[in-house]
């Protein structure tokens, strides 16, 4: 599913990320571990096609991401990659449902409210569709961010520090939701974190 070969990213004259070789199988859940500044976010951005690495190859579901033109990279990301950002950022001026519809539209899919309802229900926030995204709690935003990442049934879910701002109880819940949703849509899950609390939940890890 994911093949990385000879990946290197330089910034301001120094190498900030180096991954000689890494493979992740379809449906696997893997952890990318490392202290702050070790290049975890850069790796996720490179896999998602948001950043262009200095050297190396990244293949996602058989597609060489680094070789895609910018427009094709954006389209590929929209269709195949679900992102859960550390900040859980939502478009606050519209409803939760509109946030999810936006993700569907940008992926080039027709709006599918039934799928949105299904995802919201599976995350325990069925009644939240009409709420303005800027007015919901952090815990609810966490679930909506996960819903947005999985609503298009991506083949790869990338989560950047999804639990670092949560207490132990919420950390466990969020991680369980993420793993369940990834499994439900058969997606490969990569979680980048420096949060040692979740280390034990993953068999496969990449240490940076």
């Amino acid at each position: 599913m994911l093949e990385i070969r000879g990946l290197r990213h330089d910034y301001a004259g120094r190498t900030v990320l180096s991954v000689p070789s890494w493979d992740v199988a379809k449906g696997d859940a893997s952890l990318v571990l490392g202290p702050s500044g070790s290049g975890k976010t850069t790796l996720l951005n490179a896999i998602a096609g948001l950043a262009t690495p200095t050297a190396g190859s990244i293949r996602v579901a058989g597609t060489e991401v680094t070789g895609l033109a910018p427009a094709a990279r954006d389209a590929f990301r929209a269709r195949h990659v679900g992102l859960v950002l550390q900040t859980l950022h939502l478009i606050g001026v519209v409803s939760v449902r509109e946030n999810l519809r936006l993700a569907q539209r940008l992926a080039g899919s027709p709006v599918d409210d039934a799928r949105i309802d299904e995802v919201l229900a599976s995350l325990g926030i069925a009644g939240l569709g009409g709420a303005r995204a800027g007015n919901i709690s952090v815990g609810e935003a966490q679930r909506v961010a996960i819903a947005r990442a999985v609503v298009n049934r991506p083949s790869l879910i990338l989560a950047d520090e999804p639990t670092s701002a949560l207490d132990d109880a919420n950390c466990a819940k969020a991680l369980a939701l993420l793993l369940d949703q990834a499994a439900a849509c058969g997606a490969t899950l990569l979680v980048a974190t420096h949060d040692n609390r979740i280390r034990g939940r993953f068999e496969r890890r990449l240490e940076l």
Binding site: A48, L50, A71, D74, A75, R77, A78, R79, L83, L85, T87, H89, L90, I91, G92, L102, A103, L106, A107, R148
Partner: peptide
């Protein structure tokens, strides 16, 4: 600006 960045992560050109 974060909304715009988010839209880009969702695939907006």
């Amino acid at each position: 600006r974060y909304d715009l960045a988010l839209l880009r992560t969702l695939g907006a050109r």
